[in-house]
Simulated assay, not measured.
Amino acid sequence: MMNPDHSQIVERLLQILERVENADGLLLPICQLIPLNIFGICNALTWVKDCTTVWAYRLPAKTARLAPFCFKETAKMKGFADDIEKLTEENDNFREVLYTGKSIQLVLMALKPGEEIGEEVHDDRDQFFRFETGSGEVWIDDVANQVKADDGVIVPAGAKHNVINTGSEPLRLYTIYGPPEHVEGTVHKTKAEADASHEHFDGRTTE
């Protein structure tokens, strides 16, 4: 049974529905900001960020007319699905961001013979490397790890690290940051271009 105070709020929403011809655009933001279970609109245990994230286990008859506005279908996520090995082996850019999520980012890299990423520390993010062509070294807190095609390396947050191409061919790899490190859509054709950009993840995701 709905709390009387909540019932009054629902009544007010219904009044708005009756008075506003295009109530869709008005009520959708309300649904996005309010945990709907408070009003007995649905038995949801999560805050609503978009109206496709909540399942209506029960819907009081009095608030049934609000359902279309609280469960309006939104654009579906596509994610990332591709032949990552092929993409990595064909990449010649020093850095290319393929996909940026809220908590993870996929990036291609290619180092020329003798080239290095440069010593750095990510205090608040872990990083995974997967090597597809070439050979080199991954330094983690002053310890060198020899790497070649098919090798993988994880650098924990807070560790000083560097990747160096010690071979005679391009060292091609993909890396996964968690959370993201670079601006969505970033492409640096050369290390010099990357060093000059000073870009950093700004919260914008692929979708």
Results as ranks from 00 to 15, higher is better:
Lys112Gly: 01
Gly152Ala: 12
Arg172His: 05
Glu181Met: 14
Gly178Leu: 11
Glu119Asp: 07
Ile164Thr: 06
Asp141Ala: 07
Glu116Ile: 04
Leu106Val: 11
Asp123Ser: 14
Ala159Lys: 15
Ile140Ala: 12
Ile140Asp: 08
Glu120Pro: 01
Phe131Cys: 09
Arg130Glu: 02
Asp150Ser: 14
Lys160Ile: 08
Asp150His: 10
Ala159Met: 12
Lys148Asn: 06
Val155Pro: 04
Gly136Trp: 02
His182Glu: 13
Glu132Gly: 00
Glu132Asp: 14
Lys160Asp: 02
Met109Trp: 00
Tyr177Ala: 04
Tyr174Ser: 05
Ile140Gly: 02
Pro179Ile: 06
Gly167Lys: 09
Asp124Gln: 13
His161Val: 06
Leu108Cys: 03
His122Val: 08
Phe131Thr: 03
Tyr177His: 05
Phe129Thr: 11
Arg172Val: 11
Val163Leu: 14
Asp151Cys: 15
Thr166Pro: 02
Lys160Glu: 13
Val155Asn: 05
Gln127Ile: 12
Gln127Glu: 11
Glu169Met: 08
Trp139His: 06
Gly152Trp: 04
Thr166Val: 02
Gly167Thr: 02
Val153Ser: 01
Thr166Glu: 10
Arg172Glu: 05
Phe131Gln: 02
Ile176Asp: 03
Lys148Pro: 00
Pro179Gln: 09
Ile176Tyr: 03
Val163Gly: 05
Tyr174Pro: 03
His122Met: 03
Glu181Trp: 04
Tyr177Cys: 09
Gly136Asp: 10
His122Phe: 09
Val107Arg: 03
Gly114Ile: 11
Pro113Met: 13
Ala157Ile: 05
Leu171Val: 13
Ile176Lys: 07
Pro156Thr: 13
Val163Trp: 07
Gln105Gly: 11
Glu137Thr: 07
Ile117Thr: 12
Tyr177Gln: 08
Asp151His: 02
Leu171Ser: 14
Ile176Arg: 10
Ile176Gly: 00
Val107Trp: 01
Pro113Leu: 07
Lys160Leu: 05
Ala157Asp: 06
Gly136Thr: 05
Glu132Pro: 00
Asp141Tyr: 09
Glu119Thr: 15
Val121Trp: 01
Ala149Asn: 09
Ile176His: 04
Gly136Phe: 00
Asp142Gln: 08
Leu173Met: 15
Asn162Gly: 06
Ser168Trp: 00
Gly118Leu: 07
Thr175Trp: 02
Thr166His: 04
Asp142Arg: 04
Leu171Pro: 04
Val138Pro: 01
Asn145Thr: 14
Pro170Gln: 07
Thr175Asp: 12
Pro113Val: 07
Gly136Cys: 06
Val138Phe: 00
Ala110Met: 06
Glu116Ser: 15
Thr133Lys: 13
Asp126Val: 11
Thr175Pro: 00
Met109Tyr: 00
Ser135Leu: 00
Leu106Cys: 08
Leu111Cys: 00
Gly134Asn: 09
Gly158Val: 13
Asp151Phe: 06
Arg172Phe: 01
Asp142Phe: 08
Ala159Thr: 05
Asn145Lys: 07
Asp151Ser: 15
Asp126Tyr: 02
Phe131Tyr: 03
Gly134Asp: 01
Val155Ile: 05
Met109Gly: 12
Trp139Arg: 12
Pro156Val: 11
